[in-house]
């Protein structure tokens, strides 16, 4: 089966040729299979957000190739990039990034509206995903009227409503308390398993990471180590992650 994400030799250098340059990523290679739940961990400044921005077409690599669902996204033009994000990708950000002037319903419906889907299609799609994430009761609320956990679930619903091939999350649990974080990770796992959506998750938090199938550790812009959850329990995997972090950090 075709890989959902295929990253080959990417390199990212910040700063123009005549300015002070900084190499944030060097020679990164990896792939994500369909339905895989992959975590990316690493110290602050190691290049996680940079990598995610490149994968989600928000930024372009200096060198290298990124294929998502078989399409080389480094070759896309501006409009194609926007359409690509609208159709193929779902985002969940640390600070929720909900539009506070739209209700939860309207926020969730936004990606579909952007694709100019008809209202007839939008309604059932929003209803379906809201039910799945337990948001049905709060659809008419504005973001300021929601708790952090609820906001993040609305953000997740928005990321999922158009049934993207892959979801990117940049520390989605970063601003949540442990209970909400756990609820969100449970939801993500459920979606991952039931709908077979691939997920790529950047996180600092070993607990959140323990929900993943596989974890990539990134250090100074390079992938230094990989850890697979070989079908043992989450508790054990959590321990393993802590151990790896310990050794990896040294």
């Amino acid at each position: 089966m075709q890989n959902i994400v295929d990253v080959k030799n990417i390199e990212k250098i910040y700063g123009k040729a005549n300015e002070k340059q900084f190499k944030a990523l060097s020679d990164v290679n990896f792939e994500v299979q369909p339905g895989e739940f992959v975590g990316i961990m690493g110290a602050s400044g190691s290049g996680k957000t940079t990598l995610l921005n490149i994968l989600s077409t928000l930024d372009t690599p200096t060198r290298g190739q990124v294929k998502i669902a078989g399409e080389d996204i480094t070759q896309l033009k501006n409009n194609e990039m926007a359409d690509f994000r609208a159709n193929q990708i779902g985002f969940i950000f640390q600070d929720f990034n909900l539009l506070e002037n739209l209700t939860a319903y309207e926020n969730i419906a936004l990606p579909l509206a952007l694709q100019n889907r008809s209202n007839k299609e939008i309604k059932p799609a929003v209803a379906r995903i809201s039910e799945k994430l337990g948001l049905t009761e709060i659809l008419n609320h504005y973001p300021t009227e929601l708790s952090g956990g609820q906001k993040q679930r609305v953000a997740a619903a928005r990321a999922l409503v158009h049934q993207p091939k892959i979801i990117f999350g940049d520390e989605p649990t970063g601003a949540l308390d442990s209970k909400s974080a756990r609820a969100l990770m449970d939801t993500m796992t459920k979606i991952n398993q039931e709908d077979n959506v691939s997920i790529l998750l950047v996180t600092h938090d070993p607990f959140s990471a323990s929900f993943c199938d596989r974890i990539l550790f990134i250090k100074d812009g390079e992938i230094g180590q990989e850890l697979k959850n070989e079908s043992h329990s989450r508790g054990e995997f959590y321990q393993e992650i802590l151990d790896s972090l310990g050794t990896f950090a040294e």
Binding site: S56, L58, N78, N79, A82, D83, F84, R85, A86, N87, I89, F91, F93, N97, L99, N101, L110, P111, L114, R158
Partner: peptide
């Protein structure tokens, strides 16, 4: 700024 940035991220075209 934040709102438009977010719309940009979820795939709204510049033209839109």
């Amino acid at each position: 700024v934040k709102r438009y940035n977010m719309l940009h991220k979820i795939g709204a075209r510049q033209k839109a």
